[in-house]
Amino acid sequence: MSTLGVTGASLVKDLRMEWRSKDAINSMLFFSLLVVVIFSFAFNPTAEESRRIAGGLIWVAFLFAAVVALNQTWARELRNQVLDAYRVSPAPPNALFLAKTVGNFLFVVVLEILMAPLFVVFYELRSVGPVWQLLVVALLGTWALVVNGTFFAGLSIRTRNREIMLPLLLFPITIPALLAMVDATTSVLTGEASPDFWIKLLAVYDIVFTALCLLLFESVLNAE
């Protein structure tokens, strides 16, 4: 069974299901919209201030929104116990994991693309540093959120209180990645510092945790 083939098929299946229901993307969008509005009320920032806090605001909004999507993707596999059908098949477990991760990655990237104009409008954001660096940070950071998020969501569905379990597991492990994303974004937006260290750290984080996820997912999936 080729891992890539099954990954592709699972991914297409997930995207098709999301396209039909739009559950994940709608709830993520609405959720991050709420965060933006609430933050704006809570801090009432000026343009200068908002440039400073935007890094934190953006990523906290995306982190919370991602949790919504991450719970969704596995909930889909639990309905009708479809996951059992995958587990009795000879298909490699990591293919399922990769498909879910790439799917969630795409969902969150779409969310980011849709939300970016809103941040600009609401917070009068303008980047002082080069914008392409923001793209690199966004891609690496999103992967960092999503790879561990998908793994821990897959782990949480095997526990009681699964919706609560995901943030409890994900947030502590994500702290360094979040710190890197926030600081890198702020560095670029204010143009006051170089985000190089943070980008490297994110890359290391992505590599380390992607490897760990692929190493351990089979055990987690087959834990009864």
Binding site: M1, G5, A9, R16, N80, Q81, D84, A91
Partner: peptide, 27 residues
């Protein structure tokens, strides 16, 4: 081949879409 107590099918997909996906799992 295993048939569970629950249907083990995706509600959001049509019959053939379901079977096409599961066939793929068996190569």
């Amino acid at each position: 081949g295993y048939m569970g107590h629950a249907p083990l099918l995706y509600d959001e997909l049509s019959g053939m879409e379901n079977l096409r996906y599961f066939a793929g799992l068996y190569g």
